[in-house]
Design a protein around this nucleic acid. Structure first.
Length: 259
DNA sequence: TCAGTTGTTTATAT
DNA sequence: AATATAAACAACTG
């Protein structure tokens, strides 16, 4: 699931329930999601710390405490749960942060990404180094600059976290479909008005998705249409094209987006 | 049984 | 230097 909107939802969950709470204990049910730290190190460095206001950059959640920051990435199937203390353990609950008010759980079926710790800003910057500006905060000018000189397919460019952070496969397809731009177009071939349109649609899609906490599979969205057995364009009902760009299955409308 | 999956990294080739 | 592709990671689902 997790693209920027999902992680924004996890951030809100954490902010609403855990901010100010003391971490009494960290249970590691599966150390396979720990990156660069042992279960013991995670437990020892977090016990007794208090959650502070969390942040997000792209698809990363930065769970700050008055001690180290917990950096979480959710891969394709991760999520964050807030549950009452002692709620039954899910098969995919990998790490549990226990407070007196409840438990924050990192849940993930496939363990493609995971959790790491940053003891100071320098370590935090090290993990997040190389990420482009956050897709929700980027200005039109920064957006233009980011696409500048990129000859690769616009879809791959949008998904490249080093260029802009937060967009994944579903969002990239949704945004390009709305902007009526073919996903294989070289980024550098877009005209100024096209870039402007793309930027505007990105903001609209992100706003609506963050509100929903995910990229909603509404029938009027490409994301809804792509789940059908024989996907058709929600706007013109043309049969959608399917291809592979940037290693990911890509869908687009041949009428609105060409070819 | 086989292909496919909302993410990222690495190796390899162009 | 950029770009493209495939594979690997892990664990399912249809």
């Amino acid at each position: 699931m997790p693209e920027l909107p999902d992680v924004a939802g996890f951030r809100s969950l954490l902010a609403a329930h855990a901010t100010g709470q003391l971490i009494e204990r960290v249970d590691v049910a599966d150390a396979g999601v720990l990156r660069g730290i042992t279960a013991r190190q995670l437990q020892d460095s977090l016990r007794g710390s208090r959650f502070e206001r969390p942040e997000r950059h792209g698809k990363w959640l930065i769970a700050r405490t008055d001690g180290p920051a917990i950096l979480l990435h959710f891969g394709m199937t991760g999520s964050l749960q807030w549950l009452d203390s002692g709620a039954p353990l899910d098969r995919y609950d990998r790490v549990i942060f226990v407070t007196s008010a409840g438990e924050l759980r990192y849940r993930d079926m496939r363990k493609l990404q995971g959790i790491t710790l940053a003891h100071d800003r320098r370590e935090e910057d090290g993990v997040l180094a190389g990420l482009g500006p956050d897709a929700l905060g980027v200005t039109a000018g920064q957006f233009d600059d980011a696409l500048q000189g990129r000859r690769g397919a616009i879809k791959a460019t949008l998904m490249n976290q080093k260029i802009i952070a937060g967009l994944g496969n579903l969002l990239a397809d949704e945004i390009l479909w709305r902007a009526c731009i073919n996903p294989r177009r070289p980024a550098s071939s877009l005209t100024a008005p096209e870039r402007r349109e793309l930027y505007g649609q990105m903001r609209r899609v992100l706003r609506a998705s963050v509100r929903a906490g995910c990229v909603p599979s509404r029938p009027s969205w490409l994301t809804g249409a792509r789940q059908q057995r024989h996907p058709t364009c929600p706007r013109c009902h043309a049969t959608l094209c399917r291809g592979r760009i940037g290693g990911r299955t890509t869908m687009w409308c041949p009428r609105h987006q060409g070819r």
